[in-house]
Simulated assay, not measured.
Amino acid sequence: MTASSVRLPFALAACALAAVLAGCAQPATVAQAPAAVAATPAVQRQAFTQGAYELAYSARQNAVYAVFSGGFGATAAPSKVLKLDPATLAVQAEIPLERKGFGVALDDAAGRLYVGNTVDTSVTVVDLASGKAVGLVQLMQKVKTADGKERYSHDLRELVVDAANHRLYVTGHSFEGSVLFVVDTKTLQVVKTVPGLGKTKAPGLVLDAAGSRVFTSNLFGEILVIDTNRLEVVRRIQTEIEQPMNLVYDAPSKRLFATDQGLQMIRSMQEKGAGGFKSVHPGNRVAVVDVESGKLVHSIPTGAGPLALLLDASRNRLYVTERSGGTVSAYDSRSYQRLGTAEVPALPNSLALDARSNTLYVSIKNGEKEPKGSAESVARVRF
């Protein structure tokens, strides 16, 4: 698949993709022997309010932080971050947000949670000790469009913290050219806006701190490598992955894991785009890429619509939200075998992990059968 083969119309694709572009990645740790998986995963679930999106687990605070956008329209609820008890999912605190929150990135050592305000192209900075929003980073100003109105040209998706270098990386989407925003977390100023991520959605983002690089993915099937010292795209890896969404990276083995979602909605838009795109893979898999050679080394079959990934390298486990299937599955990250599956309907979205207690947290969005505007959920899963 070439870059010219899937240049999608902005208005159509932006609306359709908004509902499926969510999830978060977690850093890898030193690998040890895998732990056993429960035959029947234990699932505890609690509904809260509208617009469940991403999660983060803070070991320092011993709490789960869940962001809720509040939904849209006249019946929208206020956007907020909820601090949840990791054992009971009881609400310990509510942190109001002036702008709608979607993605999150945690800097646990600094006691900060960064919340992506997708539709406002900004990031809200939350201080975890005080439980208050303490800063706002405006990543881009509005531009005047052909109809004479002012709009943001880019919306946001993933956020990744580079704590050692006091950086925050944020992907900005636009069919005119997706970018990577680089923020200095000391000054809360944009250091640089890195262009060249492709004139399409660029969903995935993961940091390789030791290698001084970040990886992104785009819907041209590319993996892009950005040097974090030079702050520029230094390599483009054309892959066989048609819908590369979320990414995780295993540094010891130099393997990049990417969900290949396989949604017909996206495939239809790709086929309607210029260049005569033809699908050759149904998706519904996690693709494993050797980043040094750029070759696909394995394809892991998953449930329908895989989206978020989380790598627990200490247990050699890879967790995947199978959004369309209403499930979360655990896979062995070495043998690629499925270890177990938890049912969490309707639409499991993003993941967070308490590695010490081996507890997984899942944000869950409502499906079409739930009443419009009803509360969405967070689940606690023990495999």
Rank of each mutant, 00 (worst) to 15 (best):
M1S: 08
L12D: 15
L12H: 13
A14P: 04
C15P: 01
L17S: 12
A18D: 15
G23W: 03
Q26H: 15
Q26F: 11
P34T: 01
A38D: 13
A38G: 11
P41C: 05
V43T: 03
A47G: 01
A63T: 13
A66P: 11
V67H: 01
F68W: 02
S69T: 09
G73V: 10
A74S: 14
A74F: 10
S79A: 15
D85G: 02
P86K: 01
P86N: 01
L89W: 04
A90N: 02
E94A: 10
E94N: 03
L97W: 00
L97T: 10
E98P: 12
R99N: 13
R99F: 11
G103V: 00
L106A: 04
D107L: 10
D108Q: 09
D108I: 09
V115P: 13
T124I: 09
T124K: 07
V137H: 02
Q141W: 02
V143E: 15
V143H: 10
E150A: 11
Y152D: 05
Y152C: 07
H154Y: 14
A163C: 05
L168T: 06
Y169E: 09
V170E: 11
V170P: 06
T171C: 13
S174Y: 11
F181V: 07
V182E: 05
D184N: 10
P195S: 11
G198Y: 00
T200S: 06
P203T: 04
L205Y: 13
L207R: 04
A209H: 05
A209G: 04
A210S: 14
S212M: 07
T216D: 06
L219C: 05
L224D: 00
I226C: 02
L231P: 00
V233C: 08
Q243T: 09
V248Y: 01
Y249H: 06
D250A: 04
A258S: 14
T259D: 08
D260N: 15
G262C: 07
I266D: 10
S268L: 12
S268G: 09
E271G: 08
F277L: 06
F277V: 07
P282F: 08
D290Y: 06
E292V: 15
L296S: 10
P301R: 07
G303T: 07
A304C: 04
P306F: 02
L310Q: 11
S314Q: 12
L318K: 10
T321V: 08
S324Y: 05
D332R: 10
L339S: 07
A352G: 08
D354L: 02
R356N: 06
N358W: 00
N366R: 08
N366E: 00
E368T: 05
S374E: 04
E376C: 01
V378F: 01
V381E: 06
V381C: 02
R382W: 03
